[in-house]
Write a protein that binds this DNA or RNA. Sequence first.
DNA 1: CCTCATTTGCGAACTATTCGCAAAAATCCC
DNA 2: GGGATTTTTGCGAATAGTTCGCAAATGAGG
Lengths: 130, 130
Amino acid sequence: MGIRADYVTRPREWIASILAREPRFLSAAQIHQGLERDGARVSLSTVYRTLDRLQAKGDITARPDADGEVTYMLCEPTRHHHHAICRSCGRVEDVDCAAMEQFAESLRARNGFELDGHAIEFFGKCGACR
Amino acid sequence: MGIRADYVTRPREWIASILAREPRFLSAAQIHQGLERDGARVSLSTVYRTLDRLQAKGDITARPDADGEVTYMLCEPTRHHHHAICRSCGRVEDVDCAAMEQFAESLRARNGFELDGHAIEFFGKCGACR
DNA sequence: CCTCATTTGCGAACTATTCGCAAAAATCCC
DNA sequence: GGGATTTTTGCGAATAGTTCGCAAATGAGG
Ligand SMILES: [Zn+2]
Ligand SMILES: [Zn+2]
Ligand SMILES: [Zn+2]
Ligand SMILES: [Zn+2]
């Protein structure tokens, strides 16, 4: 009897729009502040719930920053790729990296370790920040 | 007049011994549980303080797990290397990887992105778990 | 509009981590 | 070893990020 739904609501649109225009990992609190700055009143709870939703849908990637605070970014986790993160402004650029794949593949046999995945992040300064 | 000190205490020895025999990332709570299992009564505060100390000394590496809980492992962060983490038992093996370095180096010029560091983790099954 | 399922806001609850301070332990000197 | 001095510990309270429960508000559909 439970009928599925998927309402289009203001808070969800606002939150999606924040994520859409910020090419960097943002914490729930930062997104909440961004909403306030735009004059959009949304509760922090709703921010968290919406982020959980988007993550479940596979629309965003979540990752804890160095302090353990979870941050989110619009980025399809299904399409395997890596990130280049600017140390200065936090801007994230996707790095699609076949060579890395190939390298990872070549490690598969070593150390008696059966490799089935990897996570890579590059750090540095983006073009705008140099 | 404040003279620096560096006391050798039971709690510190116990915590170091737990870390020394566990080749995987452990949370403060897990270390605390390990101590209790060994019959060593140490407060959680002391576990945190000791971990902070060890990290400041450069003896351990800290990293937030997927949920943002910080975990720690005996591992010199100064010697640049990467980790192969068993998805089954969590065992961590160091991966010293010149080829990866070289690859990272080759990316330096791309994307207008001045690369100055990278973090890599490999996942899979360790020899014992296959 | 009217109805009804879904979503939101609010405050309370939880969890991981940090802090302040008095009691306990380690070091040093005799 | 005993005692003075400094550091460390344990405890409970404080903090910060995140989750929950529930009544009120909102979106979808007729
Ligand atoms: Zn991406
Ligand atoms: Zn930048
Ligand atoms: Zn890859
Ligand atoms: Zn294993």
